[in-house]
Design a protein around this nucleic acid. Structure first.
Lengths: 193, 193
DNA sequence: TAGTAGTGAGACAGGTCTGTCTCACCTCTA
DNA sequence: TAGAGGTGAGACAGACCTGTCTCACTACTA
């Protein structure tokens, strides 16, 4: 990326804001802090993002896209559906153990912008529904549609709860117990039931 | 409560701050807003709580105490352990459906104050561990200690995930699916296995 | 080379934040 | 009634917030 590349600067702002939002939260992270850390002019930021809220939405959508791409790669391998679900839990286990894990940015966004209809709220719902749909389509290979939706919602709850426990310093227990429960539920819901 | 009652004013500040924190978040709710809504002097607030952070801890601890008292009442009834667990899920179902449900204040506090060692972080961990211990001691009536701890952690994850889904507008599915999964896990872990 | 379009830097405005301080008042007791 | 301890109200300080604006500079094109 060349310093004069406008789109390069834009992405650099998104990346920098992501790190700061993740570490300190959304309201607690000021625009001045973001532009200082990213080493860009304030006008550069405001020309790309009309407001802080729109920057937050951009950061969330960008992280959702990266998340999707990583799970896409896992899904390409030709393994049974149980193992595909297992790989999603493995991905989360690695995440929980990573040194700069600070919990789920989307859950945090929901905490700070809990007003339904707010663009940030909607961005969170998009990401969570995307993960649920992904698991549901995997599960539909091995169980009826209605059952798959219910199981996918359950797995999503386990993942969200595990992420919260991991943030509270109980990562290993969260990994072990959520995986065990998930595999048990999937096995018990297997066609023909 | 008489207007001149100091402790009355103190509790009134806590109650008012709770409503505002729940609705708009911690950083987004200013001290000025709290004292205006509670109709008390700023000095009154600062005499009772040396800083906003300590007010937040007080609000969290007070809500945790209320939560515990409500669950204590449920636990007194002499019913099998499965039903005691079921009652905890019922309690959450009612909460999710209540008109001013805005998600879990403790989870939101974790989102805004995610620094381990921070008093607010510790207050959140206290509450979540308290709920986990409560479920664990119920489960120990029907399964070995180690198993009860693991199942309690799983139930806690389901509850936390269900709370998140409920905040995203999927309360009914969260209630149904989390309860079904929880009951299945408890039944499958029943002694003698 | 000269002109032009676009970008970066930082001052600035107006508001809000937390927390402090002073002072008037109220109530209770001697 | 007079004095004293404690409380409420609001001004104030200093920092920080988001978002705007001006101006200098850079790079590209004719």
């Amino acid at each position: 990326m060349t310093p004069s590349s406008a789109s390069g600067k834009r992405q650099h702002v998104v990346d920098t804001a992501y790190v700061l939002f993740k570490r300190a939260g959304f309201h607690a992270t000021g625009i001045d802090r973001i532009i200082a850390e990213a080493d860009v002019a304030k006008m550069t930021m405001y020309r790309h993002f009309p407001s802080k809220d729109e920057l937050i939405v951009e950061v969330l959508d960008y992280r959702a896209m990266r998340f999707d791409r990583q799970l896409d790669r896992l899904a390409q391998e030709d393994v049974p559906p149980e193992q595909k679900i297992g790989k999603i839990f493995d991905w989360h286990a690695r995440w929980f153990r990573s040194p700069d894990f600070h919990g789920c940015l989307f859950a945090h966004a929901l905490a700070e912008f809990g007003d339904p209809g707010h663009p940030i709220f909607e961005a969170v719902v998009r990401q969570k529904n995307g993960l649920k749909r992904r698991m549901q389509s995997i599960l539909e290979e091995m169980m009826p549609h209605g059952c798959a939706e219910s199981v996918a919602a359950t797995l999503l709850m386990l993942i969200e709860g595990a992420t919260l426990l991991a943030q509270m310093g109980q990562a290993e227990a969260a990994i072990r117990d959520s995986r065990k429960a998930a595999m048990g539920i999937v096995a018990a819901s297997r066609r023909p039931q």
